[in-house]
Structure formats: structure tokens, C-alpha cells
């Protein structure tokens, strides 16, 4: 696995919901190396720090990478102003992605802007994958139709019940884990959701991999700012979300560390 740094042309840009954008770049060498769950650190003109954005889809055949991001502040706002024909300043692919067992049934659980990195898993595993996707309300729903197009059974949840299951992703997760023989759960989303998913998986004795977020600097493991508390070999220490993660095995993560 190696990474690159350069400017890559944007060949498609779409708006998925208010303030949420999908961008596809032509970057064959990056697509060749990329794995589901990895991210790229995207440079923004006029800002010191790059913005870490997860890889949503990898097309090795056509040599493209897709990112889906939400405008959260001035940097992502500036990124959202780019359009087809502009180039994207990309450092990537970075970090450790999901480790998906072959030929086994899995569940992906996503919350809000945590959904995009799970789409690549759905593309790769199709009907072996069940997706449980949670959003605040119907205006925030993204990518659900694409999971379905890949042949993945998709369960939608909204906090306000405007579409799909009313409430948290953990209720349908509980149901699925009871009824199906799943080898793994992969989760990405806000911390309370991640914690609830880990708890549910523990109760059903199903392994869980979680993708974490932290304020990041270099993106390549050099500056050690994006730390999260982990336990390995009985010892607590700060791992780097950018290099040791962003995907971790649930049992090694200690929240509130």
C-alpha cells in the first residue's frame, strides 16, 4: 500500500443533499492502491490544514475515486465551490481500511456523513451485505438507492421517523443480528452511534470494526495529533487515527480516553 500527492481532475460533481456533495476524480494510481475505509487528505487553497475525507467508491477499472463530503466549515465550503474540470489536491489513499472476510455475511451501519465509506463495502460484497443507514430526517438521506443498486438489503432509519424506521440504527441491528448469521459489523458515524453499535455487537458476540474521526494534521502518521486511546497487549496508548486507523477493531478502542 502506498500513497500519492498531486492534483487530479474532477470528472463529476453532484449535490446529494443540502450541503452534501459527491465528487469523482480521475486518479488511476490512487484507485489502484485504495481500499474500502481509507481516506484522502484534501488540500484547500488558502488553508494550512488539509481536510480528511473518506473514500466512498473505488473504480479500479476506470481509474477513478469518489468522495462524498458535507460542508462543515470554511474549508469544506471552499472545497464545495470546485466543479467539473477543476482539479483536486489529493494526498492519499491513506490509513487502514476495513478488513472484510470473503464469502461471509456482513452488516454495515452508517450514521449521516458516516455512510459514504460503507458504500464501497456494499459494492464489493453486494447481497452478502446488509446496510443499516441512519439519518436525522428525510432531507439528509444520501446514497441509500446506491446500496440497493449494488444488491445490498438496505434498512433506512430516521431520527424523526419521516422515512423508514423511527429511531436509532441499533433496533434494526439487534433484529438482524438475532435473525442472521453475520460474521462482521462495520460501523461509521457519530460517536454515540458507534458506542451503541459496539455494545449491541458485544451482546451478540459478533466482531465489529469501527471507523473513527479525530481532528487531523499531516494524515500520514508524522505529527501524532489525531490520537485515540486504544488497548493492545493489555497496554493503553494513543494510536494515530490517520495511520493506525481510521478503522479499528472495536475491542481495542477506549472512548473518552
Amino acid at each position: 500500500m502506498s500513497f500519492f500527492c498531486g492534483k487530479y481532475p474532477i470528472i463529476e460533481k453532484r449535490t446529494l443533499a443540502k450541503g452534501i456533495y459527491s465528487v469523482v476524480i480521475d486518479a488511476p494510481e490512487l484507485a489502484d492502491e485504495a481500499e474500502a475505509g481509507q481516506f484522502a487528505n484534501i488540500g484547500v487553497q488558502g488553508f494550512t490544514l488539509r481536510r480528511p475525507i473518506s473514500i466512498c467508491q473505488i473504480d479500479k477499472e476506470h481509474g477513478t475515486l469518489r468522495f462524498v463530503f458535507e460542508v462543515r466549515g470554511k474549508g469544506t465550503y471552499a472545497l464545495a465551490q470546485l466543479s467539473e474540470g477543476d482539479s483536486l489536491d489529493v494526498l492519499g489513499p491513506l490509513g487502514r481500511g476495513f478488513n472484510i472476510p470473503e464469502g461471509k455475511k456482513i452488516i454495515v451501519v452508517g450514521g449521516g456523513i458516516g455512510v459514504p465509506p460503507l458504500l464501497e463495502i456494499s459494492r464489493e460484497t453486494s447481497s452478502m451485505c446488509t446496510a443499516i443507514l441512519g439519518f436525522r430526517d428525510y432531507t439528509r438521506i444520501i446514497l441509500n438507492d446506491e446500496f440497493e443498486e449494488f444488491g445490498t438489503k438496505t434498512i433506512l432509519c430516521t431520527d424523526d421517523g419521516s422515512v423508514g424506521v423511527h429511531g436509532l440504527v441499533t433496533a434494526p441491528l439487534e433484529e438482524e443480528l438475532k435473525s442472521g448469521n453475520y460474521a462482521l459489523v462495520c460501523a461509521c458515524g457519530p460517536e454515540p452511534m458507534i458506542k451503541a453499535v459496539i455494545k449491541t455487537c458485544e451482546a451478540h458476540n459478533v466482531p465489529c470494526q469501527v471507523s473513527l474521526e479525530q481532528r487531523m494534521g499531516c494524515g500520514v502518521g508524522a505529527c501524532v495529533v489525531c490520537s485515540c486511546m486504544t488497548v493492545r497487549n493489555g497496554r493503553e496508548y494513543y494510536s494515530r487515527v490517520c495511520k493506525d486507523g481510521p478503522v479499528f477493531n472495536a475491542e481495542e478502542v477506549r472512548f473518552n480516553g
Binding site: 494550512t48 481532528r215 487531523m216 494534521g217 505529527c223 501524532v224 490520537s227 494513543y238 480516553g257
Partner: peptide
């Protein structure tokens, strides 16, 4: 050395603040 708890970085105008704490 373990270093300080996160977040350890904040962006500023033409710069950053860090508080890694010598991990």
C-alpha cells in the same frame, strides 16, 4: 510518553495550534 488527550490540533489563520505533549 503517552502525550495529551485529543483533540490536539486546531487550525488558525495561516497556522495551527498543537498540544501533542511529546508522545
Amino acid at each position: 510518553k503517552l502525550g495529551n488527550p485529543p483533540p490536539r490540533i486546531a487550525e488558525s489563520y495561516s497556522g495551527i495550534l498543537n498540544s501533542v505533549g511529546l508522545q
